[in-house]
Design a protein around this nucleic acid. Structure first.
Lengths: 194, 194
DNA sequence: CGCGACGTTGATTTGCCTCAACGATTGTGG
DNA sequence: CCACAATCGTTGAGGCAAATCAACGTCGCG
């Protein structure tokens, strides 16, 4: 696996010495996830965070009628976890699995806390990531309140241009909050307009 | 104004000496906001965070058709700001105003950064708050995806029992994402069932 | 080959919106 | 202190966006 990817990612936010890089990598556990394999199942307690080296993961919940609703996609260079479970120590509400064969690096909660103590720069790294995550999820709340299904689809296409061509369309539907049938009809109408 | 309220709030998360408390308070600027007065207007750059001592604020955006969509209520003991604008230095998308006569304490961005340097415990305080905020807004995204309007209303009532009786019903509608007319009809139906 | 997952399309239904009219309450200026 | 406007909540008739249900074609894969 190519671990340089995660180092490159940290370098967008903080400067690390070679020793700090090596130490950081030593705390990470690598793992392959085949398509449909789980990183986390609901009702398990989650005590780690995953970084995606290749492939794509998703976090979703399943409602009473068995429908999946996707909270987050995590393609290359994204972190993913159930923050509620990690912070509270309670069982997760989310499922996290792989949409395609993927390679991930896992950072345990204990290792993360130790990392903060040994290399405080990482506090900054993760703080920036969580700040961005908060801004993004708040914006998504507003998008769901003010945009129509068509507008949400258009916004998704412009925000995640690479994902549209790689993941099944029904996964996009489960993210923007419409049925797969309706998304299909929207696309047909959209293309007819061109 | 009763500044002890904010000290009590910090004490839920961190332990402060008398000196640290006094220093913290010295960085805060107090302000009265009458009903309908703004803390922030969209297109302004926001460079501070507000803590509500009394009253209630709200953060909302206005769509193309002039409809308001509420992202957050901030009653007593809540912090509120446009995090996107504070972090990026770009113009705010949100409006923040007072639903009733309110008293707030304002912490400027510079003062906050100085506070982190002088009393690192506050990094922990604000980190915990932002973590909780992330978990909450992510959960709200899922709620909007999987719950019906009736269920969202029921959840709002159980999550914010005090707010239901103090704020106008149309504000609740703008938060859960329905028209005021439809919320009225839902309530009528709800009461008829009892 | 045959099965399962996916996408498409059509007919029908429904949850929620739109528009309009009407009291009740609040607040405000004369 | 009253008159009036403004805001709010309620109710009803009708409309639309999106869901539901069902049928069918396609593709990848064991």
């Amino acid at each position: 696996m190519d671990h340089s990817i995660i180092i490159q990612h940290t370098q967008k936010f903080i400067q690390l010495t070679a020793e700090e890089q090596a130490y950081f990598l030593s705390l990470l556990q690598e793992k392959r996830l085949n398509r449909k394999a789980f990183f986390l199942r609901e009702n398990e307690v989650c005590n780690s965070v995953a970084f995606v080296l290749s492939g794509c993961l998703r976090a979703y919940s399943v409602d009473e009628q068995g429908f999946e609703h996707i909270l987050q996609f995590a393609p290359q260079n994204w972190w993913i976890t159930d923050m509620f479970s990690v912070l509270s120590g309670k069982p997760a509400h989310l499922n996290i699995d792989a949409l395609e064969d993927s390679e991930i690096l896992i950072l345990g909660k204990k290792e993360q806390e130790q990392l903060y103590l040994d290399v405080p720069k990482f506090e900054r790294y993760f703080r920036i990531l969580i700040e961005n995550s908060t801004v993004a999820s708040r914006q998504r709340v507003l998008d769901n309140l003010e945009l129509s299904a068509k507008e949400r689809y258009a916004k998704f296409c412009s925000t995640y241009p690479t994902l549209i061509n790689t993941i099944p369309q029904k996964q996009v539907a489960a993210y923007i909050g419409v049925t797969p049938e309706f998304l299909s009809k929207m696309k047909a109408e959209y293309l007819r307009e061109l």
